[in-house]
Simulated assay, not measured.
Amino acid sequence: MSNSNFKNILSPFTFPISKIKLNSRTVMAPMTTYSGNDDGTVSEDEIIYYKKRNKSADLLISACAYVTKEGKGFHGQIGADTDEMIPSLKRIADALKENGGKAVLQIYHGGRMSSPAELKNGQSISASAIASIRESAQIPREMIEKEITQTIKAFGESTRRAIEAGFDGVEIHGANTYLLQQFFSPHSNRRTDKWGGNLAKRMRFPLEVIDAVKIAIKENAKNPFLIGYRISPEEIENPGITIEDTLELVEAISNKKLDYLHVSTMDFWGGSVRDKNDTIPRTQLIFDKVKNTTPVIAVGGISTPEDAEKILKTGIPLIAFGRELLIEPHWLEKVKNETPELIETSLDVKNQLGLLIPIPMWNSLLTRTGWITLKK
């Protein structure tokens, strides 16, 4: 099969603000490895894992790095919270970039989703003292004004460290129920001050984080440096984030002139998680809102080149692969070499060594029911 059938995948793309250019429309989604060292530095196994996949896409996004110790979400997470982390971050950037790809550091704060076992005083923090709806969830402590402003500053400082470490950009993690989403959500944010209440006030924290990141880039970057933002379209909770809320937020984010919006979904073609009768893909709605100003990255259930081409034909310019690049580190190479029939789409449970997936990540994949297709 000729790769001319996949001309959209292999067409170049230039980000509108940074002007950074990709040779294809492919993105490696950020994937949690659970494999960092206890001090927040990257492990040798993670570096090997990244090197195995640094030709799998042209934009390569790292696992999330916490911006403060209070934001560490889980065991084995990498840190970007102090200057001592810069050599570790540089190892990641170098591993991702060694075959010509562009490296992006995802920056993060877990908020109420942080594991108490990973926190110095065992207490998570969030917009309000409201626990998430999950088994054995801790009630977080409500953040005071000083903590909020320090956390915003920490996102900027982590961006500076990413610049010094040699990354080509950062992705602000505003998705998957973590702190930025917690401030935006009417479920987790019950504040009555300037950081909560109506929709505009609930947007304030994520928008000020974006401002802090932009300032850090302006003050420190000597080369083009991109900013992306990852977002979850809806929440199942009531009250919770609706698609109408999200469309207001993405318009405000778009006005900040970022390089991309990365829409986190399990299945690109899936509809609303709040209304089963609403079957329009959420990413499509977001793309329709911002397509003239901010490029959108689609993700979720994309395995084959045919899957990717079908999405690109909707007008969405970029596609990200998460699970698929764990299964098939040579995905893009096989498309370029006109051998798409050789692309694996299920995880060979006997091939951990061949895939070079770190053991903690591997064990998580094998026990997370239904998340990844297993080949036994």
Results as ranks from 00 to 15, higher is better:
202 R>V: 02
270 G>L: 07
307 D>K: 00
229 Y>H: 08
291 K>M: 03
236 I>M: 11
231 I>F: 11
270 G>Q: 15
302 I>D: 00
269 W>V: 04
291 K>L: 02
280 I>E: 14
252 A>E: 15
298 A>K: 04
242 T>M: 11
220 N>A: 06
211 D>G: 03
259 D>P: 12
250 V>C: 12
201 K>I: 01
268 F>Y: 15
200 A>Y: 08
292 N>E: 15
224 P>D: 12
268 F>N: 03
293 T>P: 09
271 G>T: 07
245 D>A: 08
227 I>Q: 01
254 S>R: 07
309 E>S: 02
247 L>H: 04
278 D>N: 14
212 A>M: 09
282 R>A: 10
238 N>R: 15
277 N>L: 13
298 A>H: 07
247 L>N: 00
314 T>W: 04
322 G>A: 08
216 A>S: 15
279 T>V: 15
225 F>M: 00
222 K>L: 07
230 R>V: 06
247 L>K: 09
318 L>P: 03
259 D>K: 13
294 T>L: 11
305 P>Q: 12
309 E>Y: 01
275 D>V: 09
220 N>D: 03
288 D>R: 09
202 R>P: 02
318 L>I: 08
216 A>C: 02
238 N>C: 12
321 F>D: 00
223 N>I: 09
303 S>I: 08
242 T>W: 05
318 L>N: 03
258 L>W: 05
239 P>V: 09
302 I>W: 05
301 G>R: 09
299 V>C: 11
231 I>Y: 09
215 I>Y: 04
318 L>T: 01
285 L>Q: 15
249 L>D: 03
250 V>T: 14
226 L>H: 05
315 G>M: 02
306 E>Y: 08
303 S>C: 08
215 I>R: 13
247 L>W: 08
259 D>C: 11
232 S>K: 07
274 R>V: 07
225 F>T: 03
300 G>Y: 02
202 R>T: 03
223 N>Q: 14
243 I>R: 02
204 R>M: 11
303 S>R: 13
277 N>E: 14
298 A>Y: 00
239 P>E: 09
235 E>S: 04
208 E>I: 08
276 K>P: 09
